[in-house]
Simulated scan of single mutants.
Amino acid sequence: MKISIVGATGYTGAELLRILVSHPAAEIQYITSESQPGTAINEIYPHFTRFYDKTLASLGDLDKIAADSDVIFIGLPHGHAMEVGRKATAINQKVKIIDLGADYRFRNPDVYEQWYKVPHTHREAQAVYGLTELNRSQVREATIVGNPGCYTTASILALAPLVKNKLVDLNSIVVDAKSGVSGAGRGLNLGSHFTEVFESVKAYNIAGHRHTPEIEAALAELAGKEIVISFTPHLIPMARGILSTCYARLIDGVSPETVDQAYHAMYNDEYFIRLLGRGGYPVTKNTRGTNFCDLGWHIDKRTGRVIAVAAIDNLVKGAAGQAVQNMNVMFNIDERAGLDNAPLYP
C-alpha cells in the first residue's frame, strides 16, 4: 500500500511513522509539514536515524500526494483535515483517508461545530467512526475514517459492554481519566512545561472537554438512546498513557457474573483487548508503546456500582496504532500487521 502522512512532525505523526516504517505491507510515499518543509525527518526526530530519513514535503503538493497514494493519514489540528480530505478524494476517488484529528469523528457535523467552534466544510463525507472493535464492518467499507481520540478510546471500550447489554443506569455514568503529557501535543504551552507538570496532578476542562460528546455519541449508538455523562480529564507527570476509571450504577438484579459475561462476550475474540477480569487492575506501563487496551472491572456491592478501568498508550491505541489497525481492516490484511509487539518495560 502506498501511504502518505500529512502532518508528520507532531507526536502522533511521528508515532505513526515509527509504526509504518516497519509495517510489512506499507510503502511510505510522502510525509508533510507546513512548518518545516524541505527538512529531513531525522533532523527533527533523531531517533529515526538509520531507519528513516525522507525529506518533508508541503501540502502545496497535495495533487501529487493524493494521486500517488492508496491511503492518506492526516495528523493536523482540528479544522484543517476536512479540507485535505475533501480535496484529496476529489483528486483520487480511490484514495482512503484516515484522520487522526476530530474533523471526521461526528456523525452529526452540528455537534462538531458546537464543540470545536469551526464550520464543518465536508458534511457530505459519510465518514465512519474508527473505533475498530465496535465498528469493524463499517470501517472495512469506508473511504474516510475518523480515528477516535485517546480518552474516548479507553473510556468507550471500558463502558461498551455495560451499555450495550443495558446493565447500568445510563444517567449515572462518570468518567475520571488521566493522561500523559504527550496528549497535549508538541507545541509550546506553559501548562505542559516540565516544572509545571513534574510532581503534580491536575484536573482540567471540567465539564467542557471536547472528548465528552465523542464518548456520548459512541455510547448512544450502543444504547439506542441519547446519553449524557460526567467526564473529568487529568494531566499526570508521565510522557505516555491513559488510565480511564469509569463508574456507573448497576441495574437492580444484575449479578457480577452477568457483568463478567458481558465483557467476555464482547472482547474474548479481540486481540488488542486484554481482559484482566473482575478484580483486575490495568496499568499504563503494561501497554506502553503498544496497541493493547487492558481492561479490568470491579463490583462495589455496598454502593451498587460497577467500576471499569482501562489502560492504553495514548499515542498508539489512542491514536497512531488504532489508525494503522483501521488501515489494515480497510485493506483486508492481517489486523495485527505492524502492531504485534510487546510493551516497553520497565
Rank of each mutant, 00 (worst) to 15 (best):
T9A: 10
S22T: 13
H23W: 05
A26M: 06
Q29M: 12
T32Q: 06
I41M: 12
F48N: 05
L59P: 01
D63A: 13
D63T: 11
I65V: 07
A67K: 13
I72F: 04
I72K: 04
I74C: 08
G75V: 01
E83D: 15
V84K: 05
A90K: 12
R107W: 08
N108F: 11
D110E: 15
V118Q: 14
P119I: 11
E141L: 15
T143H: 14
N147M: 09
L159G: 02
A160M: 04
K166F: 10
D169S: 12
V174R: 13
G185Q: 08
F194M: 13
S200N: 15
G208L: 06
P213C: 10
G224M: 05
E226L: 13
S230Q: 15
T232V: 14
L235Q: 03
S244A: 15
T245F: 01
Q261I: 09
I273W: 00
L276M: 15
G280E: 06
G280F: 07
Y281H: 14
T284M: 11
K285H: 08
N286Q: 14
G289L: 04
F292L: 15
H298W: 09
I299P: 00
R305M: 08
R305K: 10
A310E: 00
A310N: 00
L315W: 00
Q322N: 15
A337P: 01
L339Q: 01
A342M: 11
